[in-house]
Design a protein around this nucleic acid. Structure first.
Length: 592
RNA sequence: GGGGCGGUGGUGUAGCUCGGUUUAACACAUCGGCCUGUCACGCCGAAGAUCGCGGGUUCAAAUCCCGUCCGCCCCGCCA
């Protein structure tokens, strides 16, 4: 390099006119006028127009002829105000330009497979294959820089609240329950494996026992499950745990953190305190444990009303212990048959056997099935849903889970379809008091809904033996705009209760000893009461930046089939590697 | 494991439903020429695609059928 850069490409202003500067960056675009040549020079801070004039320096002008997109260059020149009428209001540096008298080509570039600009014109697989080029796009750079600022502010806030960041190991012991683990073979211990952590759960509890009474970590977690737009096999959590703390203090802390980061990084004020909704109420009103409360369309129970109707579908569902619920959609009476069919297919996707509908016309229910409901029942249905002329009513009859899930998802679909969801708003919500356990039909046993270390609610403790499904947990999820961005609980810190829960979950004392013996033992050495929470950083960022996928806030994300298109991971291990690890492959082969 | 959408010059798309007037079209990018105030530069010209891959139907396949691979969205899964 003949000269060192003195400024970034986004910082020069009209007040810098007259200065000699050196800029380095990538050629965004070259505009050759035969005489004058303009180059938009780009670095991560912005774009500055540099001008080559043959009358100023012929040699530089000749070199400028060779410049192509994405060449890396350094230019030395003088900042000048742009001539009248040539100011570009679309650039922050648009009032000035750099008149170049010396240029050095630091590197050439092949023509990139797609243009480096914010307007997306490349498919996602191409972007991932050439991620280093994709990452040059200002929009993606902005996302990652935003992510950096967010982490800075999180650390600042938690440090100020006396939290200590401690790293926990990645090569750990597999724990039962939860997601599928990624395994790493141990070379020095033939036949044995490490698991990559799904979260630092056990270690952060151990740190509480160790006396680090306020811990946090911005940490990678790994889960070997199928991917979604908001699920990657490796993702980042803000993991927090504290001792001598209860739910109220966790809410206080996390709400304070959220208000702080939104104010500092996004310049947005978030209202406190956040709404709180009990799990049961969330399920009943919104059909989900992570309701989007930015719009209405709440679910209404009409079981008691319609059980007296002549509609066999409803009656049978109720007789089998199920229920009938509905939602009201305003002014949709002119909905097409095709769209009703689509809504029905959506409901069946979540297990519903069908979708009943009424259109409200002249104070009555208009529907192929209306004849099964006498005038009094129709009136009571309309009353309970507060239905008015022109409304569309949709009903599902089935067990609680199917009714909730299908109507909950129908509600979400209609909210989007009818533009009921306000843009650019952030609605936080605590969902609390989840059931401690749920019943797993397949395995014929209770499973922890959160994780096996979650404390039951003290007042529900007596039901633990007789009626475990009724026991609520001291758990809480943080929901933002209908997305679960965090969850946690107050933990069990007494060995006896922990053993009792393991018993409930069908984990034998022997198995518990084998899997979590170290934790149970640690509990016997003075474990303080403690609890915590983990926030999904990628999801939080995705929503803060109003993006469709967490892949846009992760520098090197994986595809849906968990591969990296840039590096080709995962790879086929060599025979040598497998031999060292004492691993022999037994792959299913096609027809051989 | 299952359902849906997509794959056509370097890139993004049209063509596919009804097989043949298609010599596969358009835009951007690329290359060459001209151009001293452009910034979506402009003008003139050029090059560039056996239509993801394999098989089948047919006189004839980008187009129809079967299989397969890749990407995306979803169900299951994700304490």
């Amino acid at each position: 390099m003949k000269f060192k850069k003195t400024h970034d490409c986004g910082c020069l202003r009209i007040s810098d006119v007259g200065q000699e500067v050196v800029l380095s960056g990538w050629v965004n675009v070259r505009r050759d006028h035969g005489g004058l040549i303009f180059v938009d020079l780009r670095d991560r801070e912005g774009i500055t127009q540099v001008v080559f004039n043959p009358q100023i320096d012929d040699a530089a002008h000749i070199i400028a002829h060779q410049l192509r997109s994405e060449y890396v260059i350094a230019v030395k020149g003088v900042v000048q105000a742009r001539p009248l009428g040539t100011v570009n209001p679309n650039l922050i540096t648009g009032q000035i330009e750099v008149l170049v008298y010396e240029v050095e080509i630091l590197n050439t570039s092949k023509t990139p497979p797609f243009e480096i600009e914010d307007k997306l014109d490349a498919s996602e697989d191409l972007r991932l294959r050439y991620r280093y080029l994709d990452l040059r796009r200002p929009k993606i750079q902005k996302n990652l820089i935003f992510r950096h600022h967010l982490c800075q502010k999180i650390r600042e806030f938690l440090d100020r609240h006396r939290f200590i960041e401690i790293e926990t190991p990645f090569l750990i012991k597999s724990t039962p329950e939860g997601a599928r683990d990624y395994l790493v073979p141990s070379r020095v211990n033939p036949g044995r494996f490490y698991a990559l952590p799904q979260s630092p759960q056990l270690f952060k509890q151990i740190l509480m026992i160790a006396g680090f009474d306020r811990y946090f970590q911005i940490v990678r977690c790994f889960r070997d499950e199928d991917l979604r737009a908001d699920r990657q096999p490796e993702f980042t959590q803000l993991d927090i745990e504290a001792s001598f703390i209860d739910e109220e203090e966790i809410f206080e802390l996390v709400e304070g953190l959220v208000v702080y980061i939104f104010r500092e990084v996004l310049k947005r004020e978030i209202q406190r305190p956040f709404f709180r909704l009990k799990y049961k109420e969330a399920m009943e009103r919104f059909g989900t444990d992570k309701p989007d409360t930015r719009f209405g369309l709440e679910i209404v129970d009409v079981t008691e009303i319609v059980k007296e109707s002549d509609f066999q579908v409803f009656k049978r569902a109720i007789e089998k212990g199920g229920q009938v619920k509905g939602i009201k959609v305003s002014s949709l009476e002119d909905i097409s048959k095709g769209e009703i069919d689509y809504l029905t297919s959506l409901a069946t996707l979540y297990g519903a056997k069908g979708l009943a509908y009424f259109k409200v016309k002249e104070g009555r229910c208009d529907s192929p099935i209306a004849k099964f409901f006498d005038a009094d029942i129709q009136r009571r249905i309309l009353d309970s849903l507060k239905a008015e002329e022109g409304d569309l009513l949709l009903f599902v009859a089935d067990d609680f889970r199917i009714v909730s899930e299908s109507l909950g998802n129908l509600r979400l679909h209609l909210g989007k379809r009818l533009n009921l969801i306000p843009d650019g708003t952030f609605e936080f919500l605590w969902v609390i008091h989840h059931p401690l356990v749920e019943y797993d039909e397949e395995e014929e046993r209770f499973k922890a809904m959160h994780h096996p270390f979650t404390s039951p609610l003290a007042e529900d403790f007596p039901s633990l033996e007789k009626n475990p499904l009724e026991v609520r947990a001291r758990a809480y999820d943080l929901i933002l705009n209908g997305v679960e961005i965090g969850g946690g609980s107050i933990r069990i810190h007494q060995e006896e209760i922990q053993k009792q829960i393991f018993g409930l979950l069908g984990i034998s004392p022997r198995e518990a000893e084998e899997k979590f013996g170290f934790l149970l033992e640690a509990f016997t050495y003075g474990a303080p009461p403690h609890g915590g929470i983990a926030l999904g950083l990628d999801r939080l960022l995705r929503i803060m930046l109003n993006l469709d996928s967490i892949r846009e806030v992760i520098a090197f994300p994986k595809t849906q089939s968990a591969t990296c298109l840039m590096t080709g991971a995962p790879f086929e291990a060599t025979q040598q590697q497998l031999k060292e690890l004492n691993i022999r492959l037994d792959l299913p082969c096609n027809g051989a």
